[in-house]
């Protein structure tokens, strides 16, 4: 057992954990930050994605101790960080996922949203190809990804003051508004 000092969602926290524990385990079972999910536990699915210094990383194959001195952002961090920066409600990416139906079972989604967040922080208005590339390490079994792409497009468009494409199912007349 060792004491780790981790910077998580803007807080510096000290936590005791065995050195063979991964970041995923420490977040979930020591810090109670269970928003980070585990789907394969060996780097295959992306459910455990967190941001380290703003970049998406697989926490299930990342030793917790190697995250010391870095900034870790988990899904739980987005809303408070958004609010601390003067925003209201959830991070616009989270909100957009909800409004576009991208959240089915939700189990892939904390990883998915963090990958999307890293993309949107880097590319103001990503194309669908950009989105496909950025999410290509996050498996989703429910959505067929379509509404996830739409959520990313919508978040980007709203920020840039552009009109997102209407989904195939949306009736011509009605406003696609959730």
């Amino acid at each position: 057992m060792q004491n780790l000092r981790l910077n998580i969602n803007g807080d510096s926290v000290e936590v005791g954990a065995p050195s063979h524990w991964t970041l995923c385990e420490v977040l979930r079972y020591r810090l109670g930050l269970t928003g980070t999910k585990q789907g394969c536990d060996k780097g295959d699915c992306g459910a455990c994605t967190v941001l380290i210094d703003g970049r998406p990383v697989l926490s299930c194959i990342h030793l917790a101790a190697l995250a010391e001195d870095k900034e870790v952002t988990t899904i739980e961090g987005l809303r408070p960080l958004h609010q601390a920066a003067g925003g209201e409600g959830c991070d616009p990416v989270q909100d957009s996922f909800d409004r576009c139906g991208a959240l089915q079972c939700g189990f892939c989604q904390s990883g998915m949203i963090l990958s999307a967040k890293a993309l949107l922080d880097e590319v103001p208005v990503p194309t669908e190809e950009d989105a496909r590339a950025a999410l290509s390490g996050n498996l989703c079994r429910c959505t067929g990804y379509t509404q996830i792409f739409q959520a990313i497009e919508r978040a980007a468009c709203e920020r840039a003051g552009l009109e997102p494409t209407k989904p195939a199912w949306a009736p011509e007349s009605s406003e696609h508004e959730a």
Binding site: I75, Q94, G106
Partner: peptide, 24 residues
């Protein structure tokens, strides 16, 4: 007939939703 948010959408989007393995 209208596209509404899901009742648990934001809970899932923020990591608040509790799945079986989240129970301690």
């Amino acid at each position: 007939g209208k596209p509404h948010r899901k009742v648990d959408g934001l809970a899932k989007a923020t990591g608040e939703a509790v799945y079986a393995d989240d129970i301690q």
